[in-house]
Design a protein around this nucleic acid. Sequence first.
DNA 1: TATGGATTTCAGAATTTTCTGAAACTTCAG
DNA 2: CTGAAGTTTCAGAAAATTCTGAAATCCATA
Lengths: 192, 192
Amino acid sequence: MNLPPLTQSFVLHFGEMGSRWGINRTVGQIYALLYVSEAPLCADQIVEALGISRSNVSMSLRELQAWNLVLLRHLPDDRRDFFTTPDDVWQILRTLAEERKKREIDPTLSVLREILMQEPDSPEERFGQERMAEMHALIERLTTWYDDVKQLDTGRLALLLGLGAGITRLLDAKDRIVGLGRRKPGSGEGRR
Amino acid sequence: MNLPPLTQSFVLHFGEMGSRWGINRTVGQIYALLYVSEAPLCADQIVEALGISRSNVSMSLRELQAWNLVLLRHLPDDRRDFFTTPDDVWQILRTLAEERKKREIDPTLSVLREILMQEPDSPEERFGQERMAEMHALIERLTTWYDDVKQLDTGRLALLLGLGAGITRLLDAKDRIVGLGRRKPGSGEGRR
DNA sequence: TATGGATTTCAGAATTTTCTGAAACTTCAG
DNA sequence: CTGAAGTTTCAGAAAATTCTGAAATCCATA
């Protein structure tokens, strides 16, 4: 590996964390390298920088493309593919959230749905199914919220984030103003 | 493996997803089994139900305890440990969020902080460092928001989730009513 | 402090994942 | 059509992780 010190720390860290994030070491390192590089890099430059095999780079770039985490660039009169990451960290965040949902949540949701459609054939099964229903309801709630929030433009999203828990003050204020009915605060359940 | 069909589907699915979630197959299966079981189970019952070795169960329960995902129970006049999961899915969600943050985010945040304190010794390094600063700022923002939101009681949290993107209507309304000063809408920065 | 039921540890076996080098493929220029 | 530059594929090597059985440990009781 042949990198300046700060870059190297960053790249090595992404490599180590890779497994916790559901990608592997090489994929993590390549992503980190592209992220901190000003100009797009081609496969051989990555081989050079990280000291890994050409084929590993090829596979890993393919994986990063499957995650939609890299962009393809071309130079005039050069057949090689060059890769970068998007500039906007908010965009990266959105992609990451989307892909992780797709891989880590959606399959479970669909398994749960399938199980919930079946008839349990013992009291134990019935109990278990009820627990699964609770889990399903919670995940549905979260993904619905996520689907909503991801539509927001970055400005509003940042605003919301900045507000933090302060949002409840706003909710309280709203309840006071709107007053009647629409929703009981603090009831915890009920809706949908 | 010796389980009724719906339970088995659920357990097997958690086993398969385990690797994507940063735990291993056995840990996933044991968690799933405890989750759908009405009564707490002891290690030997888990061995029986899942058909895996006693030592594997012991290791995996230890892992689940490290994740704070299981509760220990005791029966009178029985020395064995019995395990369950918390009843409240919201509580489970909180634990999961906390633990994943601890394992997946915090280490990166601290590496980034360390790198940002150093002096880059080339223009490339300087560029990279600026990118890392952007990443750091975003993660800080998200974790600050998370630290805020996790303080909310479940009722309010559920309320907020139910509101979804509708929250921005509320924000707009507030801006219209409060009108003057307190905060510039859409600026994206500022607070704390 | 000896006994025995229960749990934990740990070295190595089994399995899975990652990585490599060689070969195959693709595309374009001459 | 041929060959050069580039890329991908894939079988097996290397590495990492997971799982097991046997031995060690723990601990309440007598």
